[in-house]
C-alpha cells in the first residue's frame, strides 16, 4: 500500500454499498499491452503470465481506501482489437475515468494512443479524467518508447502519466490512487457547480 492507501476487504456483494464514492473506470489500449494483467495485479496483487484473452468486455470491482475515504471502483476491461472498438465505444459515455494503456516495448501501441485519445474525445464526457499508463517497465531491455515521450504526450493532452509494471507491481496502486484523487477533485468541482446553478443548495446524496 502506498501513502494513506489501503485495500478494503473483498466483501460480499451487499457490502459494497459501504462506500463514499463510486467511479466507473474504463481500461482501453491496444491488444496485449497488459490491461487485464494490470487489473489482475490490482485485484490479487500477483502477476499471472497466463491470462486468457479478453473478448468484448470484462468487469471487476475494486474497493480502495484513499485519504480515509472509501472508494468503490467499477473497472471495465475492454478487448483491444480494432474490431471491438465499436462495441467498446458505447461504454465511453458511462466512464468517469479512462485508463489508456500502452506497452513501452511496442512503438505501435504508443502511436495508437493518439487514436485512442480521439475515441475518448468522441465518445466520453467532456473533461473526463484520463490516466496514461506505459506498462511493462520490467522489460527495460526491450524498451522502445522513452519515458520522456510519454511525459510529453501526457502534458500535451493534460493527462496523468505513469510508467508501471503489472509484472512487478511497480506503480500499479500508486497510479490508481492518483486517478482516484483526481476523480474526487473533479466530482467536488462538479458538485459545487451544481449547487451554484440550482439555488437553494440541494440535499447531499450519500456522499461526504
Amino acid at each position: 500500500t502506498t501513502d494513506g492507501v489501503g485495500a478494503a476487504s473483498r466483501g460480499s456483494p451487499e457490502a459494497t454499498q459501504d462506500f463514499d464514492h463510486l467511479y466507473n473506470i474504463l481500461f482501453i489500449g491496444d491488444s496485449h499491452v497488459g490491461k487485464t494483467s494490470f487489473l489482475h495485479r490490482l485485484h490479487a496483487n500477483t502477476f499471472n503470465p497466463h491470462l486468457i484473452a479478453t473478448v468484448g468486455l470484462d468487469y471487476q470491482v475494486k474497493n480502495l481506501i484513499v485519504d480515509n475515504k472509501r472508494f468503490a471502483l467499477r473497472l471495465w476491461d475492454s478487448a483491444g482489437q480494432e474490431r471491438y472498438r465499436s462495441i467498446t465505444k458505447q461504454f465511453f459515455r458511462k466512464a468517469d475515468g479512462v485508463v489508456l494503456m500502452y506497452d513501452i516495448t511496442s512503438e505501435s501501441s504508443f502511436s495508437d494512443v493518439r487514436y485512442w485519445l480521439s475515441c475518448i474525445q468522441e465518445g466520453a464526457e467532456d473533461g473526463v479524467t484520463v490516466l496514461l499508463l506505459g506498462n511493462k517497465t520490467d522489460c527495460a531491455a526491450e524498451r522502445r518508447v522513452p519515458t520522456e515521450e510519454g511525459e510529453r504526450l501526457a502534458k500535451e493532452h493534460q493527462l496523468i502519466f505513469f510508467e508501471c509494471s503489472a509484472a512487478s507491481g511497480h506503480n500499479v496502486s500508486k497510479s490508481m490512487v492518483s486517478l482516484v484523487r483526481l476523480l474526487k477533485v473533479r466530482e467536488d468541482e462538479l458538485k459545487i457547480k451544481a449547487r451554484e446553478v440550482s439555488e437553494p443548495p440541494q440535499k447531499k446524496k450519500g456522499c461526504c
Partner: peptide
C-alpha cells in the same frame, strides 16, 4: 497495416487461448 496487425494479433492471442491447458502455448 490492418492485415499485418491481424496476423500479429493471432500470434499474441494463441498463447492466451486456454492457457490452463498448456497445449496451445
Amino acid at each position: 497495416a490492418d492485415r499485418e496487425a491481424s496476423l500479429e494479433l493471432i500470434k499474441l492471442d494463441i498463447s492466451r487461448t486456454f492457457p490452463n491447458l498448456c497445449i496451445f502455448q
